[in-house]
Amino acid sequence: MYRYAVIYNPHSGHNNGESVGQKIEQALIKNQHKVELMPTEGPKDATRLAKKAARAGFDVVVAVGGDGTINEVVSGLATLDQPPYLGIVPAGTVNNLARMLQIPLDIDQAIENLQQVHLRPLDVGQVNDDCLISTMTLGILADAALNVTQSEKQKWGPLAFLSKGIHALAEHQHYPLTIETPDRHWQKDTQFLLVTLTNSVGGFTNFNPEAQPDDGYFHVFVAPKMSLARSVMFLPYFLTGNFKKIPGMTYFKANEISITVDNQQSAQTRIDGDPSAKSPLEMRLLEHKLQVITPNPDL
């Protein structure tokens, strides 16, 4: 028997977050587990609730939602020396982390997965004072994501982000960056930078086949300047897991990174779908920081 704290937004989706929370509660109680529902009351409240659940001695803290909600829960757990296990019931538009961990996107199957308690280590990124569980974008990809409406996300899913990103390339905005790791130094003029911990980006699960949830690295892509026509020509690279092979693309792995926009212009970043820190960025990987419940490959 385990004690589960279930953190969810009661107004998520079509205001059906409450019913999803109750469904999880009923399934866990049916199997003799103890459950406490913890609905959020506003932005970043999931971080507070995750810390509260850990202090109360819960065995598992369940994040119900997309990458943004999971990020908030992880932000509360990653500061602890002995955090509870992380459980995930994916209920977002993109669900990059859940896709990489092969957690079912079907609610009923995801609830069943919670009760198997098969654990896998999970790396967590730290970006200044923020946590990173999936992706960080800087430049036009971050700007483009700001223009994706909730209705577009619900209607088109990951394709909404891809479409906005391609059109943003036509604006020809670029950023001079200084990027440093413990053993390298670059100065690059780029339209966008992408840092990922997952093989799924924008919901496309074959984006970066090399990435693993516990491999100990940030995977970094620094794009060359591209016209709209050139970006469309390279779209197959994105869809077939060969993004790093785009001519002029800089790709590297590191566990510590410093990133500065050299001309001090405002460069928006987004972490796991939400607006986040601006330059300069100090990034550090917290290797195997959490234990997350995933499907048992032997079953």
Rank of each mutant, 00 (worst) to 15 (best):
L114R: 03
V127F: 05
C131N: 14
I107V: 14
N128A: 04
I103V: 14
L177I: 13
L194R: 06
V124R: 07
T93G: 04
S134D: 07
D108F: 00
N113H: 00
A170S: 15
H167A: 10
V148L: 06
L119I: 05
Q109M: 09
Q191A: 13
L141A: 14
I140G: 03
Q150P: 05
G139A: 14
G165M: 04
Q173W: 00
Q115H: 03
T137L: 01
D129Q: 07
G157L: 10
L159D: 05
D143T: 01
K164G: 07
M136H: 06
Q115I: 08
N147C: 13
P182M: 03
R184F: 10
L146V: 13
L177T: 13
L101C: 08
T190R: 09
T93Q: 09
I103Y: 04
D183L: 00
V94E: 09
L194N: 07
D183S: 05
F204H: 12
Q102N: 14
H172Y: 06
T149D: 06
L159N: 02
L119A: 03
A144T: 04
Q173Y: 01
H167S: 14
K153N: 03
T190Q: 11
L141P: 07
L159Q: 04
L193E: 09
D183M: 00
L146M: 14
V195Y: 10
Q116F: 00
A160Q: 04
Q154W: 03
L122N: 00
I111G: 01
E171M: 03
L162H: 02
P121W: 09
T198C: 08
R120I: 02
T93I: 03
Q102T: 11
A144D: 02
P176W: 14
D183W: 01
K188I: 14
P176L: 10
P158D: 05
I103T: 07
T196H: 02
K155S: 14
E152C: 01
H185Y: 07
N147V: 08
